[in-house]
């Protein structure tokens, strides 16, 4: 029995094929990303599985999972909201956006709502400063030019998902 779904494994295999045959480890970042999309976060078992699948030592996988900050090495809420507060976003009101989110969700950065729906984290530069302020929903969806109305609408949308 596999730790990951056949769909996930197929995606991982596609990534492995991008690299020379003796460099399966190159696919570890994608493999962890794909595993995280399926599982929500990277448990010890999941990382062990990925290590085994790619022929790596588990600690080498753990090094990667803890180095890149988009991996969830602890369980997170259904929707992880990552707000960039770096200088260009801050100049455009990122702190107010963050405060609004904190207030509406009743949590601080690094926390998860009791109903496990939302996790709020502080992000670093996402390379989209022209669209500031902005946030990421579950790593892969970017919301730009944020203001209070947009925040409210986003939370309403996600709550009903």
């Amino acid at each position: 029995m596999s730790m990951l779904s056949a769909e996930s494994l197929a995606l991982i295999d596609k990534e492995i094929a991008k690299y020379p045959a003796d460099q399966r480890q190159s696919a570890v970042m994608s493999a962890l990303r794909i595993a995280q999309v399926e599982k929500g976060w990277l448990s010890t078992e999941t990382m062990d599985f990925v290590a085994h699948y790619l022929g790596m030592q588990p600690i080498a996988v753990y090094e990667v999972a803890t180095f890149y900050n988009m991996y969830n090495i602890k369980p997170v809420g259904k929707h992880k909201l990552c707000v960039c507060t770096n200088l260009p976003c801050k100049l455009m009101g990122a702190d107010e956006i963050a405060d609004r989110l904190k207030k509406k969700l009743g949590i601080e950065f690094g926390e998860t709502t009791e109903d496990k729906q939302f996790t709020l984290v502080e992000g670093e530069c996402m390379g989209a400063c022209g669209d500031a302020p902005l946030l990421l929903v579950n790593n892969h969806r970017m919301e730009s030019f944020l203001n209070e109305e947009k925040i409210d609408a986003l939370l309403d949308e996600l709550k009903n998902k």
Partner: peptide, 10 residues
């Protein structure tokens, strides 16, 4: 020959 220790986090 076996990587048992690593440097996690950054």
């Amino acid at each position: 020959g076996i990587m048992e220790m690593g440097q996690a986090f950054r």
